[in-house]
């Protein structure tokens, strides 16, 4: 058991955890940030995606100790000052979610995707870039539409899929 400190959603936090504790377990169990989900055991579903030092990673495939000293952003920290992030807004407006379980990981993946691709994002790229995020409800149709709409809102991407 060791004390692990990091910055989560802009706040300095620390907690005692075994070295084997995964980042997602630390977020959920130590910090009560249950918006980050676990949907598989094999690092494939992406329900656990958070940002560590600005980059999207799977929090189920990283020890909490590895993230010590880093800045972590979870779904709970995305809406700044109560104002929805454009990606959150786009998911809402385009019905980009149904049961909501994959949604936090999808939104965190989408914000990272838009950060990296900006205006060059098109439907094919979005679909390829979603390889690490599985959804069982939406058939991805409205997720793709939401991401393109958000990218457009955030700085001009190509026309959203119909």
């Amino acid at each position: 058991m060791a004390s692990i400190s990091m910055t989560v959603n802009g706040r300095e936090v620390s907690g005692d955890a075994e070295d084997r504790t995964l980042l997602v377990e630390f977020l959920r169990n130590n910090l009560g940030l249950t918006g980050t989900h676990v949907g598989c055991d094999t690092s494939q579903c992406g329900a656990c995606v958070v940002h560590v030092d600005g980059e999207a990673v799977k929090s189920c495939t990283m020890l909490a100790a590895q993230a010590a000293g880093s800045a972590v952003t979870t779904i709970e920290g995305l809406a700044a000052g109560g104002e929805l992030h454009p990606v959150q807004k786009a998911f809402h407006e385009n019905h980009g979610l149904q049961c909501g379980f994959c949604t936090p990981g999808m939104i965190m993946a989408a914000t990272d995707m838009i950060r990296r691709h900006g205006a060059s994002l098109d439907e094919k790229t979005v679909r390829e870039e979603l390889e690490g995020n599985i959804c069982r409800c939406t058939g991805y149709h409205n997720i793709v539409k939401s991401i393109l709409a958000a990218a457009n809102e955030m700085g001009g991407a190509q026309q959203a899929a119909e």
Binding site: G46, E55, T61, A109, E131, G132
Partner: peptide, 9 residues
């Protein structure tokens, strides 16, 4: 390789 999140790590 893998997916974007894997490629970041």
């Amino acid at each position: 390789i893998g997916d974007p999140h894997v490629r970041n790590m």
